[in-house]
Design a protein around this nucleic acid. Structure first.
Lengths: 200, 200, 200, 200
DNA sequence: TATGAATGAGTATTCATTCAT
DNA sequence: CATGAATGAATACTCATTCAT
């Protein structure tokens, strides 16, 4: 019998902690040495659970997606919106509240891409799968099957977060949200005239 | 061996060349040694014109914006679109064609952020000013004063480029463009019923 | 999970398996982790049977000699050559066929030297004894008591294998064998005019 | 003007010193850190002159060959042997005297091979070229064009050095030399009946 | 007896920057 | 002004070994 340690449980514990470390320091600036120190273990131990930095990062990425989806589910459950308009606004409000955290994730992701080369990312299905999951979650919540519109919604949200990051928050989130909410609702109503079917 | 004795002129020449180098290789992957070699100069000489890598990088960032605005102006001048719909499509087509290059710039920008820390970015007006200039250029070209709609357009373009970067091009640019083009035109027509005034 | 409870028996089983592993990968490139994995055992278990990597390696070295002598005996028994010339050729053919394997052993041996330092080798009778056994085996097979000639034969074989290792096989084995076979036969015939006595 | 340092001269100086370091400690046990320390410079400086450990080692290898050839030339010049027999003996005596040094070289070489994998060696022409040079030098000195015999001579010398290394010097060098000298002379005389032409 | 978690010193290599010439 | 030699701290990763369970 080995030392009594649930390998998988500890792995997850590491991921939990390291997630915030990456968010705070980014990919390149956070060395394996630093990570180990923050975890209170040796480098060797860290490598015992993850074969290399990249694997650790990817595990973190996968976790983040699940965390985000769960957080969104919890949020909209509590919000209890019923009409399409309200639900669109709920999504927007969620993003507004999570903005800083979402941006952090984007930042780390971008850095990872630059460090490891974009090509490896392209072959990496994780991020594409994550995007699909996000879009699907929104589509289900909005109760529409208009994939283009929902993707456009997601794209707009992404763009808005970046925009506000770049201009230091000068762009008014609510104004943009209002505008997009209106055109999106109009578009969905037009494409889906039978009305809004709650499928959640 | 710089042919140009004028300090400032040579500085600019360096910036011109290094801009494309950073765009291609990113910040971290491009060493001062590589830059010097590409310039046909010794590292020491490079340090005579820029005190450190960061200063060089910032000079490059400032240059990029001007290059882009000029490129867009040249593009739409040649396109010669007259109706609002056409001009919206011209902008979209421009982005589609420039997509890779635009993404490269975004990547460089993101690295700039990681290098300097997000805080300094907030205080740094360069990027905010750049965004304003981009939005203004589009507004002028479209001949509308609906700032919100134009900003939304810009935001959507930004988001679309990132989206396609992350999913490896899986999202269909033309489909998204079509969709957004429609809602934007409708929105602008509604907000600006008097029609479209070419103010360029 | 060793099936065999007898400590010594299991030790030998390990040696058997690990011998081929060292031959294939060499000393430095083969980690205790790899060995344990190949044995289907944990590292801890491995350390129960051998106090350290070096002890395991030495045990392997001792085994190799016995394997070789047995292999040669089996080979020449099957070959059934009767004249001196034929037997010289049989030895040469054996070496040609076993070349890769013999070279692997030499490599392992060399690493043994590096590991223990050449000085310890000098004091270590194992290898010297092994050489004696090899020479004696050949002498007996050739049926001659000309120790010098047989040692020279052995020396030549050793040199030839190394030579071909270093030059990537450029040196022609058969050509060399032919040449040496001729001079050796001549030498033996001259030194031992009474002829060739099969003493095996 | 850079710091006044003759790059090539210093490179050679490094090679000189490092040659003996490799001979003493072997390839793997001698770290770049140790080398730098022995040279009295920083690791960075070392990498300024050699891109990696392997390049440094190869440079050392190439140098060794030249040193050896020169040493042999100096030796036989001084020896002034004129007959074939005498020259064969001169070569043998040279090897006897250089034995320890030659063995050291072989040891380092073998280790390098194990560390970097034999495949890379195979593709590496340096060692094969070195062997050719050695054989050619001997052939020229002996004044014979019998490539097989000279190669056999070389092979025998290699084997003898290894043999004596393995058995701790138990094998009598002079006895072996005598024996081989006789058969070689006989072989050469037979193959080259016109006699021995001094071509040195 | 058997396990595998933990260690930490060790490896080659990189790179922005300084400075003597 | 220009050079490139020199630096040294930093990086990801390896591995024989120990030991609590």
């Amino acid at each position: 019998m080995p030392k009594i340690v649930d390998h998988n449980a500890y792995r997850n514990e590491i991921i939990q902690i390291v997630t915030s470390l990456f968010a705070e320091h980014g990919y390149a600036a956070l060395g394996m040495r630093d990570i180990a120190k923050a975890l209170g273990v040796s480098k060797g131990t860290l490598y015992h659970y993850f074969p290399n930095k990249e694997a650790l990062f990817q595990a973190v990425c996968e976790t983040i997606v699940q965390l985000d989806l769960a957080a969104f589910a919890a949020y909209h459950e509590q919000a209890g919106a019923t009409t399409l308009q309200e639900r669109v606004r709920t999504v927007l409000r969620y993003c507004a509240e999570q903005e800083a955290w979402l941006m952090q994730q984007y930042l780390v992701l971008m850095e990872y891409v630059r460090v490891n080369g974009p090509n490896e990312l392209r072959q990496n299905r994780i991020i594409q799968a994550a995007t699909d999951e996000y879009v699907a979650a929104i589509a289900q919540y909005l109760g529409t099957s208009d994939h283009t519109a929902v993707t456009a919604f997601f794209v707009f949200l992404t763009g808005l977060i970046f925009q506000r990051f770049f201009d230091g928050g000068a762009t008014d989130f609510d104004g943009m949200a209002e505008w997009f909410s209106a055109v999106l609702s109009a578009s969905l109503a037009h494409a889906d005239p039978a009305g809004f079917r709650n499928t959640s």
